[in-house]
């Protein structure tokens, strides 16, 4: 992970400590959206864009899990799908860190409370879970569209209280074990923990290329992320969005890393 040294501080620091309201979720049948929130049609303004991209991308309405997937929910998935157990998973689809906080193949243990978000899951594993629920992973545009909302309105960037809460999260260390999902204050759409609990996989994380053409063009990427690279960004003060792009561009789909979990989405 090329950018890890730049990002570790931030990755370890995003944590929300609050109450312990957990949104109950049942296994949904087709069409049922228990535990999901409808995000209405809107737009997403990419933090970084190439010259021929428009400033705003339309995001059709979609359902989003109100909270990240928990250890207990993922345990039920690996019970039903033995090939996703820690001892059985192909190294192609999940690296050695996979479910590394769990005590065993089918045992959560003290580092993985049932209602805490599951972390150390690869993109492949997260996608397989989502498919098993009849859902999918949200796209970057969808995730960012939901996460741009403040507490009081759809544009958190215009809410002073929301911006200061975001910055406060960045300075807090991550508790171990992680707090339960649903601890965070719901945003305008009723979605919790988009900020402050864990990083989350998105379906198209591998589009976070930033420099455009070439993976070999690492000098430019490094300048952009680790140097004084905020020039040219949509909003240089949107530090969390900036960190998410750097984090996503450093990932590979088999990585199972601490503090990286996921939630699911579904089209209406």
């Amino acid at each position: 992970m090329r950018l890890s040294s730049c990002l570790r501080l931030g990755a370890a620091a995003l944590a929300w400590i609050g109450g312990a309201l957990v949104v109950a979720r049942a296994t949904p049948a087709a069409g049922v959206t228990t535990g999901m929130t409808l995000i209405p049609t809107g737009t997403y303004a990419p933090l970084v864009r190439s010259q021929d991209e428009t400033a705003e991308v339309a995001v059709p309405s979609f359902w989003l899990d109100a909270v990240p997937v928990t250890n207990a929910e993922f345990l039920a998935f690996v019970q039903a799908n033995p090939k996703w157990r820690r001892s059985a998973v192909s190294p192609l689809f999940a690296d050695r860190g996979y479910l590394g906080d769990w005590a065993g193949d089918l045992e959560l243990g003290p580092l993985a409370p049932p209602a805490a978000p599951v972390v150390r899951v690869s993109w492949f594993a997260a996608r397989a879970y989502a498919q098993s629920m009849g859902k999918r992973l949200p796209t970057t545009a969808e995730w960012e569209r939901a996460a741009a909302a403040g507490f009081a309105g759809p544009a958190g960037s215009t809410e002073p209280g929301f911006q200061s809460a975001l910055l406060a999260w960045v300075t807090r260390p991550t508790p171990q074990p992680l707090p339960n999902v649903g601890s965070g204050r719901p945003n305008f759409f009723g979605v919790r923990d988009l900020h402050g609990l864990v990083w989350e996989w998105v379906a198209d994380f591998n589009t976070a290329m930033v420099t455009g053409e070439s993976r070999g063009d690492t000098g430019l990427e490094r300048n952009l992320f680790c140097g004084a690279g905020a020039a040219g960004l949509r909003d240089p003060s949107d530090f969390p969005a900036f960190m998410r792009i750097g984090f996503r561009s450093s990932l590979r789909a088999s990585y199972a890393v601490p503090n990286l979990g996921f939630r699911c989405a579904r089209s209406p």
């Binding site: 190439s50 021929d52 991209e53 589009t207 590979r252 789909a253």
Partner: peptide, 22 residues
């Protein structure tokens, strides 16, 4: 396949792809 290889790609508005040369 792109995920397994670590190839990044993104289609732009004109239908062209920005992509890793890997």
């Amino acid at each position: 396949l792109a995920m397994l290889l670590g190839v990044k790609f993104k289609q732009d508005a004109r239908g062209q792809f920005a992509h890793s040369n890997l």
